[in-house]
Design a protein around this nucleic acid. Structure first.
Length: 816
RNA sequence: GCCGGGAUGGCGGAACUGGCAGACGCGCCGGUCUCAAAAACCGGUGGCCGCAAGGCCAUGUGGGUUCGACUCCCACUCCCGGCACCA
């Protein structure tokens, strides 16, 4: 009996694959179909724990499978290396963020290799190195050139702890996505990318993404938040001014009994200028302004407002309706002012009740509704010439009427906001812009890229970019007029770096261009993208946007970068996400040393459906170890059993052959149609059980050739999951080439056919007996055989059956 | 509040298109080997009743459709995720 010496085996083959360059690909290779498998690149902070491992292991299994299917497989890896953690660590330990980052990269690379995860490391990219961020800056310039990067003063989300602004997408429930500090609002001059210009396309093209999880598409759809409606002009009484209001429910216009505008609305100050209650109103405005935006999220947030003293006219009824200033109106959405229909909107209703404003019903529910406020659609009442119409028709008719009269127009609004990319921090790609006293905002010339990030910097956060204090960086000359000028000192959001990295892998060393269009067009869209669902909105939306922009520049020929997306679930321990602070991390180095990388890989793939969260259990790991040892022992059986004397048992041969083909079929199906590694592995375990059944007597029940076929198939099927043991077994069985240079096994439908099957005999849907039948037997014969079973006769008694249902190969159901 | 997803043994999870619920693994129980233990191997393992043959009950709850429902329909409970005063 040989020892399963996984430590030796794993080292041996890792070295072999690396030296043979087995997982390298030439992008010019057109001899085979291409397959681009992309695993989201990690942020290189500290070392990996098993919770991090899942996506790399899934990716590696896919890659190895596709290699065996003879695709030219591109499997690259890189590092999303700019960002706050590096900077914070650097501040804490007084080291350079670059050193810290590069050290982590080295460590993580070693870990990935020790798990047998293969990448084409010649394509490695690191976003914090100049040969990469040069092209991130280039991307900025292109966006600027095309009017899609712009600077404006705006109320922005600011994290007081990270001392930097955040994009909308990085604010979670009013808190900083990174550190959970409540976000405050600041008025700052910042750079934005005009992602809103792509809102409709980002929404529309979700339809093309058939192989994306439905929920990710939904999240993006909700985030884009398209709504169709009408923008209505409300004339102010005794004034030539108008208040524009956006509504999706123009069918309720006859019930609009007041207007409400945001306290930040540009008209707010003017409206109250000659009010006798000016002081009170100002006090209210003050109070509203002082409330943090995050307070709105609380249940306790109370809707408050104040009558500004002016009236507007309802354009349909000509009724005078009061204009209120209210704290619940969002300045940044729509026009910052709304028409209020208290009878059909709960928020307006609450407000109207509180301040005694008229409530007028204009929609009759289709079926009786008991509620005070009916928010659904129905039949219009009290709505002049439009009474009697249903809501959806009325929306159309009223919109047309308003457009005719020039008092309103159809509009589409999005929740999506432009992407704020300025960060007041050091560890990021500098924004390639120069401010000249004569020429104003001047982009850095393309040939002057990269704008190098200086290395010896005092980077304590101050709310200003640390680059402000680096004179050599800050002071420059204007590329236009040569005057002394200053550089932009903010750096870019790291999501800019990762919005295009999947393109750079194709041409990682190219120095004239970010990538070579011809090669990119051959290799993309990415065939399979794998990563965490936490990127459902941020990274995946930004990448889609940038890709569409490059598409418009004709630099890429595909409008979506990722054809197929797989989001894996987390590995949890004791019910929580693994994290150092919780102290529940499982160290992969220990697992690899004690049980081997193959065991760890197998267990992570077997622990449950890969898209769902899974609980790490050491016992489960041990089970997988046991299984691999069981597979290993089969290799000894080749020599130890007395094959000369083997029983000439054709039934056993047939049974094992059938199992082999059945397993190939099922495993292939699980890998092709979806990522059901757990069931694929279960099938392989069944095959092993079946093999043991046919050899657990000596001499064995099956012929040696059938046994050999079974064991070879076993290791071929295992190869994507447990590559090291499979390679070793392959060699031990006398094969000369790598198992990854052999073919994925195929199956023969004919071998799968069984001659005899055992079917269930049911009475009224309950299983009462079983019957062994020949598959070729005619239905009548099967039915009569079932009816003549002693058990059936007894239960049926004398009454004849009313009906007999036969489902071929499965069951007979007798109804009486 | 709105939009998704989910609930199956002691545990993780299987189940084709409506067709024998519980594959596979873990755990547990029994056995073989051993001075003993571990490892390994073999067998058993949803619950209840029964010596047994067998029977009854069981896929979150309550109804429905069907010869037949984990699967389809209606109502409800709980859990997870996303969005959240978006007019």
């Amino acid at each position: 009996m040989t020892d399963y010496n996984f430590r030796e085996i794993e080292k041996k083959w890792q070295k072999f694959w690396q030296e043979q360059g087995l997982f390298q690909v030439d992008v010019k290779d057109r001899s085979r179909s291409k397959y681009y498998c992309l695993v989201m690149f990690p942020y290189p902070s500290s070392e990996l724990h098993v919770g991090h491992g899942r996506n790399y292991i899934i990716g590696d299994a896919v890659v190895r499978y596709k290699v065996m299917k003879r695709f030219a497989v591109l499997s690259p890896m890189g590092w999303d290396a700019f960002g706050l953690p590096a900077e914070n660590q650097a501040i804490k330990h007084k080291i350079n963020p670059k050193d810290w980052t590069l050290r982590n990269i080295k460590r993580i690379k070693e870990q990935l290799s020790s798990w047998g995860i293969m990448y084409d490391w010649r394509r490695e990219i690191t976003t914090c190195l100049p040969d990469y961020y040069k092209w991130t800056q280039w991307l900025f310039l292109k966006l600027y050139e095309n009017g899609l990067a712009y600077r404006k003063k705006a109320q922005v989300n600011y994290c007081p702890s990270c001392q930097t602004v955040l994009a909308n997408e990085q604010v979670m429930e009013g808190k900083c996505e990174r550190c959970s500090t409540p976000v405050i609002q600041k008025d700052l001059e910042q750079w934005f990318f005009r992602i809103t210009a792509y809102a409709d396309r980002l929404l529309e093209d979700l339809r093309l993404l058939n192989n994306w999880p439905e929920r990710v598409k939904l999240m993006q759809k909700n985030w884009i938040g398209r709504s169709e409606g009408v923008e209505i002009d409300f004339a102010l009484e005794n004034s030539d001014k108008k208040i524009k209001c956006f509504t999706t429910r123009v069918d309720t216009i006859f019930g609009a009994t007041f207007l409400a505008i945001s306290f930040e609305h540009p008209l707010a100050e003017k409206l109250i200028a000659d009010s006798p209650h000016k002081q009170e109103i100002k006090a209210f405005l003050q109070k509203a302004k002082s409330q943090p935006k995050s307070a709105r999220l609380l249940d306790s947030f109370e809707k408050e407002g104040v009558f500004c003293g002016k009236y507007a006219l309802n354009p349909m009824t000509q009724e005078r309706i009061p204009v209120w200033i209210a704290n619940y109106i969002l300045a940044e959405y729509g026009t910052g002012a709304i028409m209020c229909v208290p009878a059909h909107d709960r928020r307006d209703y609450e407000f109207a009740k509180k301040y005694n404003i008229k409530i007028k019903e204009v929609i009759k529910p289709l079926s009786g509704s008991e509620e005070d406020v009916y928010e659904g659609e129905g039949i219009l009442i009290n709505s002049g010439q439009f009474s009697g119409l249903n809501s959806s028709l009325a929306k159309k008719k009223i919109a047309e009427f308003m457009e005719d009269k020039g008092i309103g127009r159809r509009k589409i609004h999005y929740k999506l906001r432009d992407w704020l990319i300025s960060r007041q921090r050091y560890w990021g790609a500098p924004i390639p812009i120069i401010y000249c006293p004569n020429c104003g905002v001047v982009p850095v010339e393309e040939e002057d890229l990269p704008v190098l990030l200086p290395e010896n910097v005092e980077f304590l956060p101050t709310g200003q970019s640390p680059l402000n204090f680096v004179k050599e960086f800050l002071n420059t000359t204007c590329p236009h007029c040569g005057a002394a000028a200053k550089r932009e000192t903010d750096t870019m959001d790291t999501f800019v770096d990762s919005s295009w990295y999947y393109l750079r892998y194709i041409s990682p060393q190219e120095h004239r261009l970010p990538f070579i269009t011809e090669d990119v067009n051959r290799w993309l869209p990415v065939d399979q993208y794998i990563g965490g669902v936490e990127h459902a909105i941020l990274h995946l939306m930004y990448s889609r946007f940038i890709n569409k922009f490059l598409y418009d520049l004709k630099m890429v020929s595909f409008s979506e970068p990722f054809y197929s997306l797989f989001t894996q679930g987390m590995i949890v321990k004791d019910g929580f996400k693994m994290s150092k602070s919780k102290g529940n991390v499982v160290a992969p180095d220990y697992i690899v040393d004690t049980y081997g990388a193959d065991t760890m890989r197998l267990y992570i793939l077997f622990m449950g459906p890969p898209e769902k969260d899974a609980e790490w259990k050491d016992e489960g790991l041990v089970g997988c170890f046991r299984f691999l040892k069981r597979c290993w022992r089969l290799l000894d059986m080749r020599e130890e059993l007395d094959w000369q004397q083997s029983n000439n048992n054709q039934d056993a041969d047939q049974r094992l052959k059938r199992k082999i083909h059945q397993t190939v079929k099922e495993v292939t199906k699980d890998l092709e149609s979806s990522f059901q590694f757990n069931t694929a592995i279960a099938m392989i375990m069944e095959l092993v059980n079946e093999i043991y059944k046919s050899i657990n007597v000596n001499p064995p029940l099956v012929e040696k050739s059938v046994f050999e076929e079974a064991v070879k198939t076993l290791f071929l099927l295992l190869a994507p999951f447990t590559p090291h043991i499979s390679e070793e077994a392959w060699q031990r069985m006398g094969e000369k080439n790598s198992i990854f240079q052999s073919f994925w096994p195929s199956y023969d439908e004919k071998v799968l056919q069984e001659k005899k099957v055992n079917i269930a005999v049911m009475i009224n849907g309950k299983v009462r007996d079983h019957l062994e039948i020949d598959v070729s037997m005619p239905q009548e014969e099967i039915e009569s055989a079932a009816l003549s079973l002693a058990k059936v006769k007894e239960l049926l008694g004398s009454s004849p059956p009313q009906k007999v249902i036969y489902i071929p190969g499965r069951l007979v159901n007798i109804v009486n």
